[in-house]
Nucleic acid binder design. Structure first.
Length: 490
RNA sequence: GGCGGCGUAGCCAAGUGGCCAAGGCAGUGGUCUGCAAAACCAUUAUUCAUCGGUUCGACUCCGAUCGCCGCCUCCA
């Protein structure tokens, strides 16, 4: 089986074929660092984290580069508002970004270049473009000649004529053609600036990715990724710059993920309908956010709501409860004369887990389908587990243990089931209990009282206690080895 | 207006032309239980926005229509 990925350039799913065998070179556009990250950024980071983890699981070597845009108009404006330098502001939010990423359990890329540390590479690429007649200097700015690149529009599937009709391009006297875009901007007084052959200035937005991907991955590499909103103009312009300067194909394949929406509208700063990663992590465990993000395919829009997060919570807890239940089987006495409780069908289902998972993930990283396979598997595990005799066959226990180990290994690719199950469930209870006006001691005391009532067959008082606790969201579970309690999600 | 995408059960969501259209949440009936809860079992789309077409056969391919979303300006 080969991995197939959807390529924006061709609009098709294609088998992954790396330029260098067994080695994937991946470049992803990272954040512009001027504010806290929202869950749209989380989706982006999580999607590529999952993709890298899966590629590594499939034995690829991966070189993963993700940049920081640490100089641009928004950064300068925000820095002025805060009476600080753009450098300080950008670095501060890079640190905040790391705080969020670490909480989400996202692995660091291999290389994280910053735009401001690659001015020389950008300048030399711009010079190359000028010398090839693909760019021109005008009043200290440098522009790319879009008409010099016949394939312009091949990624976003649009042509220059249609775009001119759209006519929302800002008027700029300097430009020879309205679609020409800036490679180098002359600095205004007080703005951050670097020396260049065209005077003091700073780079345009798109050139950094062309220059840095070339430096770290080469002129041609395997996959370039980012959000769907980057297709045009950012990635289209990158192609024009890189292929124009290098005269070689740029990224072979393009992966673009969908947006996070709220009430079906794109989350964005201008609409003010965004939630930061830390807003979410205040209320939900990071794995719940991961579970939610991966519950749909990465290219589809994903609508955020509290209800959806509750569903994700319930689903993840169900997985953890299964893991915890199997973990507890250690304490059982085994008996080799017991019959096996596995049917052939059960075994087949459990043993095919990894293969089915790979099939789903090979198909353009279909995490939604993969999650379905997890649930399908735990259904079988739970079924078998409940059929276990008090003194089961040790081989049956072993089979269950092995399948849980496989499940955890595969779930880890999405960053799920990485905690000890009992601890996860316990911490979740603690967190929920702290929001209630009842202590664990009070609950335990009431359970003791109720159990005495039950021995006395005083059902009315016993039920009263249970209802009383239920009113406070405490649910009781009477089992063979006593009464357990959980805090109910509301 | 141009381009791209989406429309599958009450909600979310898979589905790479051909066995009963995954899975989750919610619901219903049952097993278990003193009664419950959890878990388990069973059940919930003669149908995949609509209408045509291609095909022996389509949710899956093609065309049209309706609806929603995104990009075309900074944006993950």
């Amino acid at each position: 089986m080969t991995i197939r990925t959807h390529n924006t350039l061709t609009g098709k799913k294609e088998p992954l074929q790396t330029i260098e065998p067994g080695h994937v070179k991946l470049y992803v556009c990272g954040i512009t660092s001027y504010d806290y990250c929202h869950i749209g950024h989380a989706r982006s980071s999580l999607a590529f984290d999952m993709i890298v983890k899966y590629l590594k699981y499939r034995d690829y070597k991966v070189t993963f580069v993700r940049n920081f845009t640490d100089i641009d108009d928004k950064i300068i404006t925000r820095a002025n508002e805060q009476n600080t330098t753009s450098e300080e502001l950008a670095n501060r939010f890079i640190q905040e970004f790391y705080t969020d990423m670490d909480k989400l359990g996202i692995d660091r890329p291999d290389i994280e270049p910053k735009a401001t540390e690659h001015i020389a590479e950008m300048v030399s690429m711009i010079e190359e473009l000028i010398s090839k007649g693909k760019a021109y200097e005008a009043g200290g700015d440098v522009y790319y000649i879009v008409d010099s690149f016949p394939e312009y529009g091949k990624l976003s599937k649009r042509n220059i004529e249609d775009m001119k009709a759209g006519a929302r391009i800002s008027v700029n006297e300097q430009k020879q053609h309205p679609m020409d875009f800036v490679l180098w901007k002359a600095s205004k007084p007080g703005e951050p600036k670097w020396q260049s052959p065209w005077g003091e200035g700073r780079p345009g937005w798109h050139i950094e990715c062309s220059a840095m991907s070339k430096k770290y991955l080469g002129e041609s590499f395997d996959i370039h990724g980012g959000g769907q909103d980057l297709i045009f103009p950012h990635h289209e312009n990158e192609i024009a710059q890189s292929e124009g300067a290098n005269c070689k194909p740029f990224a072979k394949s393009w992966i673009h993920h969908g947006f996070v929406t709220i009430k079906d509208e794109k989350m964005s700063k201008s609409l003010g309908n965004f939630l930061t990663i830390r807003d979410i992590l205040n209320n939900y465990h990071p794995e719940i956010l991961r579970f939610f993000i991966f519950s749909t395919h990465y290219r589809n829009p994903l609508d955020f709501s509290e209800a959806a997060m509750q569903d994700a919570t319930t689903g993840l807890v169900r997985l953890y409860e299964c893991v915890a239940a199997v973990d507890q089987l250690d304490s059982l006495q085994t008996d080799e004369s017991s019959p096996t409780v596995f049917t052939d069908k059960d075994l087949k289902k459990i043993e095919s887990l990894e293969e089915r998972f790979q099939q789903a993930m090979d198909n353009d990283f279909n995490t939604a389908q993969a999650q379905g396979i997890f649930f399908d598997t735990i259904k079988t595990i739970n079924k078998v587990r409940t059929k276990l005799s008090p003194t089961p066959l040790s081989k049956d226990i072993k089979t269950l243990k092995v399948s849980i180990a496989t499940l955890k290994k595969l779930a880890a690719i999405m960053g799920l089931l990485r905690e000890d199950a009992a601890t996860f469930l316990h911490n979740k209870q603690e967190a929920m209990l702290s929001g209630l006006d009842i202590s664990a001691e009070t609950i335990e005391a009431l359970i003791l009282e109720r159990n005495q009532c039950r021995i006395d067959k005083n059902w009315s008082r016993s039920d009263e206690i249970r209802d009383e606790l239920l009113a406070k969201n405490i649910e009781l579970k009477d089992g063979a080895d006593g009464t357990a309690w959980i805090v109910k999600a509301n």
